[in-house]
Design a protein around this nucleic acid. Structure first.
Length: 905
RNA sequence: GCCCAGGUGGUGGAAUUGGUAGACACGCAGGACUUAAAAUCCUGUGACCAUUGCGGUCGUGCGGGUUCAAGUCCCGCCCCGGGUACCA
């Protein structure tokens, strides 16, 4: 009998669930002795979409599961939880279309996800499951929002503090009216209401955060996005910009994610500088990173939205400026992005006085200057800034050279090196020195000072949607007030429809009699998708606590995530927000860590391989791939599940769709060969491979091994089911090592030297692989190990028992089965990972470790003597060298593969 | 444009980080078993040359360099992928 994976896998999955094998215990209160070291392995929890999982989704979960199981075997108390990020747009859109409550859709989808996840045999502690849409969870999301509302960022202590430490610092605060006090405090609170330019998406009827907008359209749905001024809740993430940037140094995340966050935060150090407007008291303040080029300023450009525009514009230019501003306003964000190269602008008619030369400088308006960054105004130095250069060329403005080294007739010279020229007291200085000198001069004159700007904007927190956490705020006399903690959760009210109202208010405005204490209006927007995911890693530590978001004991023990696995697409979204909230909660003394995850691994995407059939145009005839060149054909997607090795299953195909029932085929060698192409895995491309089908056909151990075997975890790669036979063979070979026929066939004899060598080499490699997250190579190493043991006809318990343990993280079902057949009563989860013993790897007395160039290797070491020069330039064979060295004083000679490669003197 | 990560057989990918390049697997070819097929097992498989036998030459995107030794380190190019983009 062959290995029956269906029976075995089902058996152990039921066993694990029944015995709660993977339950992670928080240590008992006050007991600091005898606690196992903790290890926290976290996956980015999924949004439960209606489509279910495809084979790409579990990739990261399999990797984290292997690591979690490995750490348990290494004696750690492992926290490995799973939950659902269950607020989100698809459920809401489905609700809009069908009228079905999103909660029902969500529950159905979660049930399906759970079923699929269970089949793969993950070692999650399901007792700690969280769902962000569950009131017992979002109660605490709302609670954290209230803490943000009640806090401000104290620049002196460089941390968030309760708002009551601020009020004594505000002069005359007590004399203000309640409304004035509220308005003033909103300028400091970390969660605040303000008039903000937002990304408004009319089709979705909501605002979007910057990272939810890609190329001027919404990331979800691809609808156009426009700029709009709205009263909105925001979170003051900018207060944390410096810490978010600096703390990247201390965490083990991939360089590309860190770099993406650095760019997103976009710290730039420069100088503010005021230009006095001619014949006016007004001043234009600009921000520049190149104050050294100040003598190259030939005009000043304002953003169209700049507050001084109307005041400055001369009567003669009034009409032109107004027209331009209307034009700029109506030009949507998308158009602006699409034709970046199109240069537009208008002259105001006004001038500023150059602070150093006293010359008259024209003031222009241009939409290449962004209102939201810096001061919304720039000093234009066309000689040394490519955008100013393009603008100057277009409007025929003067271009001055102040840093030597470029050729300004062709392009601007933007490099920060070279000697200053045409710059009075800066002449002859290098750029670096010139920057220092000019900043000193600017500060002397009192017209500016050194300043740091960030690209990062505050995060818009309100969404005009139904399916999200209600923001726990009500309005009393126009003053926003947060609910009391004991009034939480503020439960999402029922509505008749999930659409905005006819007057454009959010869906929550439809809720009947939904008022605080029956009289005050609640805030009608809900929180964005990332709210719940910004702290969920903490909730798993203490998932059922109804007194606190997490208990002190739990968080003191689990601290933060040791290994976090998830997609790189969250680089500037979730991964930035979760760091922000972690730092905030730390500032309030609620948690002991400033970063959510010590190590982060980004798994790659698994793409689909689509199959194509070729229909001869105008007929119902299908021609095989290699013959299609003789016909005029249209390629059509065909379901990859009825294609095997590019060969179409004709019977299955005829039943696949009604229209192909009577299709005719032009075959080659009696087969219909399909074409193929790598694309994103999606339903519409018929290239979705479901993990359920893989588990059904090959078993979950095979699926797990194969997903790892496919290539490095972090790489994106196409799914190709063909190769799975390799790992299936491996599983059967492993089974055969322990069995002859149906009988367990195990010998209690002691292991031989060669057998021990195979085992220990494997242990060494696997430990190295796992700790470096090279799960793909460990699968190969298992195969080599089993092949070698098969060759040695090894059926010894002394080898097979430890082998089962080291394979267990990868193929847990077969490992459990073998373990129990070997007579163990407890799950292999509680076994101990075998210790590696290097001595088994030493082959002979001649072969021992040699330290060489600071590294230890297993080379042969011979005591020989030889003058360095003799072998220095020549690689000799061992025999030749030995002849050379007769009778000389002993020296070490490094020999690799029978050739002397180096001499240690 | 800028930033990041890559480029190794027909394919996915190894290479203990400077030490026999191509592990392992897929695919392909040949063989054994079988009436036959499936399954299983064995052999071969970077290219070119030599093949009655041990062999030889080239080879990790391209061009240089360092080294006894380079896929790996240095310099200069080329190409693919990802992120980001008027951020002054």
């Amino acid at each position: 009998m062959e290995y029956n994976f269906r029976k075995v896998e089902q058996k152990w999955q039921q066993y694990w669930a029944k015995n709660k094998t993977f339950k992670a215990e928080n240590p008992p209160k006050g007991d600091s002795k005898n606690v196992k070291p903790k290890y926290y392995v976290l996956d980015m929890f999924p949004y439960p979409s209606g489509a279910g999982l495809h084979v790409g989704h579990p990739l990261g979960y399999i990797a984290s599961d292997i690591f979690a199981r490995y750490k348990r075997l290494k004696g750690f108390n492992v926290l490995h939880p799973m939950g659902y990020d269950s607020f989100g747009l698809p459920a809401e859109q489905y609700a809009i279309q069908t009228g079905q409550h999103p909660e029902i859709t969500t529950k159905t989808n979660i049930a399906r996800y759970r079923e699929q996840l269970d089949k793969i045999g993950f070692s999650f502690d399901w007792d700690r499951e969280v769902r962000t849409s569950d009131p017992s969870y979002y109660k605490w999301t709302q609670w954290i929002f209230i803490q943000l509302f009640n806090s401000w960022y104290n620049p002196e202590t460089n941390k968030a503090e309760k708002i009551d430490t601020l009020t004594p610092k505000l002069k005359g605060f007590g004399t203000l009216s309640e409304k004035e006090q509220s308005d003033l405090l909103l300028e400091y609170r970390l969660a605040y209401l303000s008039d903000t330019m937002v990304n408004w998406c009319p089709q979705l009827g909501t605002v979007l955060a910057n990272e939810e907008v890609k190329d001027g359209v919404s990331e979800r749905g691809g609808y156009p996005v426009e700029r709009k001024l709205m009263k909105q809740w925001s979170l003051r993430i900018t207060a944390y910009a410096d810490r978010l940037l600096n703390d990247l140094e201390g965490i083990d995340w991939t360089e590309s994610i860190k770099e993406a966050q650095r760019n997103w935060i976009g710290k730039s150090e420069g100088t503010s500088l005021k230009f006095k407007v001619e014949k006016s008291d007004a001043e234009i303040e600009v921000f520049t990173t190149r104050p050294d080029t100040v003598f190259g300023v030939s005009f000043v450009t304002l953003a169209p939205e700049h507050e001084l525009v109307s005041q400055l514009t001369t009567a003669a230019q009034k009409k032109a400026v107004e027209e331009y501003i209307t034009f700029a306003k109506n030009r949507s964000e998308r158009e602006r992005m699409a034709d970046v190269k199109k240069i537009t602008g208008v002259f105001t008619g006004a001038h500023v006085i150059h602070p150093f030369t006293g010359k008259q400088i024209p003031i222009w308006i241009g939409d290449y200057v962004l209102a939201g960054y810096g001061t919304g105004a720039v000093m234009a130095v066309p000689g040394h800034d490519s955008r100013d250069y393009a603008f100057a060329k277009h409007f025929e403005l003067p271009i001055l050279e102040v840093v030597a080294g470029g050729d300004l007739s062709k392009e601007s010279y933007d490099a920060k090196e070279g000697k200053l020229i045409n710059s009075e007291f800066l002449n002859g200085l290098e750029v670096k020195e010139a920057v220092k000198k000019i900043i000193a001069a600017i500060e002397d004159k009192g017209i500016g000072k050194g300043k740091t700007n960030f690209r990062l904007r505050d995060a818009i927190f309100g969404r005009q949607r139904y399916w999200g956490e209600p923001i726990p705020v009500y309005y009393q006399g126009g003053i926003p007030k947060v609910l009391d903690e004991n009034e939480l959760p503020l439960v999402l009210p029922e509505v008749d429809k999930y659409l905005p109202t006819e007057t454009g208010e959010p869906p929550l405005a439809r809720a009947k009699d939904w008022k605080y204490k029956g009289q005050y209006e609640y805030e009608q927007s809900t929180m964005p998708g990332w709210a719940g995911s910004s702290w969920y890693f903490l909730r798993y530590m203490d998932a059922h606590n109804d007194k606190e978001f997490v208990s002190k004991e739990a968080v003191e023990y689990w601290k933060n995530v040791d290994l976090y696995i998830g997609g790189a697409e969250h680089a500037t979204g979730h991964l930035l927000y979760v760091r922000f909230w972690t730092k905030f909660l730390f500032d309030l003394g609620l948690i002991p860590v400033t970063e959510p995850a010590k190590k982060l691994i980004n798994q790659g995407m698994i793409q689909g391989v689509s199959s194509f059939i070729y229909r001869i145009n105008g007929t119902n005839k299908l021609v095989s791939f290699n013959l299609k060149k003789d016909y005029d054909t249209t390629p059509l997607h065909v379901d990859v599940n009825i294609v095997n090795n590019n060969v179409l299953d004709l019977e299955a195909f005829k039943n696949w769709r009604e229209e192909y029932k009577n299709a005719e085929f032009i075959l080659e060698d009696g087969k219909y060969i399909c074409g193929s192409e790598v694309e994103k895995m999606s339903k519409s491309k018929w290239n979705v491979v479901s993990p359920d089908v893989m588990v059904e056909q090959h078993g979950s151990d095979a699926l797990r091994l194969y997903e790892m075997f496919l290539g490095p975890l972090e790489l994106s790669k196409p799914w190709n089911t063909n190769g799975i036979s390799g790992v299936s063979n491996f599983i059967r070979k492993l089974w055969r090592l322990y069995h002859s026929g149906e009988q367990l066939n195990i010998s209690d004899e002691p292991a031989s030297k060669p057998e021990l060598k195979v085992l220990h080499r494997t242990i060494k490699k696997i430990v190295h692989d796992i700790e470096n997250f090279s799960f793909n190579t460990s699968v190969s190493n298992f195969m080599i190990c089993v092949n070698e043991l098969t060759e040695l006809k090894c059926n010894k318990r002394a080898i097979l028992e430890p082998l089962a343990i080291i394979i267990a993280p990868y193929a847990p079902h077969i490992a459990e089965e073998l373990w129990s057949q070997l007579g163990h009563k407890k799950s292999i989860t509680y076994a101990e990972f075998p210790e590696f013993n290097e001595s088994y790897l030493v082959e002979s007395a001649f072969n021992y470790p040699v330290s060489f160039n600071g590294k230890t290797r297993f080379f042969q070491e011979y005591d020989l003597s030889l003058s360095k020069e003799q072998v220095e330039k020549e690689v000799l064979t061992l025999e030749q060298t030995q002849k050379y060295l007769e009778g000389k004083a002993p020296k070490k000679v490094i020999v690799v593969h029978n050739k002397i490669v180096n001499i240690v003197v």
